[in-house]
Amino acid sequence: MMAPIRAKELNRNGSKTLPRPAGGKWRLFVRGAVLPVFIVSVWQILSSTGTISTQLFSSPALILKQYWNLTLSGELPHHLRISLVRALLGFLLGGSCGLLLGLFVGMFRKFEETVNPTVQMLRTVPLLAITPLFILWFGFGELSKVLLISLGAFFPLYVNTFLGVRNVDAKLFDVARVLEFSRFSQMTRLVLPAALPNVLLGIRLSLTIAWLCLVTAELLGAEAGVGFMIQDARAFMQTDIVFVGITIFALVGKLSDSLVRFFEIRLLRWQDSYKG
């Protein structure tokens, strides 16, 4: 009998890609860090020498100091916690609706014909245009913010899940019929795993949008949250705190994206696609 390759000879991912040369990871990091380090240094030098106004442009050292102060006073953790809870609630609400509706629209033709045109129309309405209505209907409280975020998070997951379901290999449905999969098994064992690459992409996009909508919602009126912190600091010309808020948004956004990327790599190990 033939046994040309042994399982042991395949590496963990089973891929046959060449390993990067030694120290490659370090060099990659350096290459990516050159530009930001340069900009931050120039910025610091310019403000230290008084070439630019620290009042308007602040400086890296001042921003770091504010980070320290705000963390010690408990202000930053407080605002961050409130923002995170809002974004997470909005994402969970909007994302799960998008996922479910996308699945149904993908699975059932009649459902698609009834629901999809309306959703596609709503998708093109700018969120900022709806915000005044949301405030009128749901007030300035948490509800209108969470709903605004969930509306933003809904569409990317909806569109990508729908696309993912439609990309499932039709031949595998024949297999599911021959193996007598139940409706539930067909959904959980065939449609969802096959659509997973698209669903994960949708989750990444939804998370980003949720984060963007959060800022919109908080800038429009809030008593707490990172967006409120920025708005408040702007009123008092505290540019360093504005920068703290901006960098926090960037950091948390990047972290959440990396988290999904991490799951993506683990869950999609079976994929055999071009890796560059």
Partner: peptide, 9 residues
């Protein structure tokens, strides 16, 4: 089937 039609995942 002519092709194996395994679930790739």
């Amino acid at each position: 089937f002519q092709e194996h039609r395994l679930f790739p995942w």
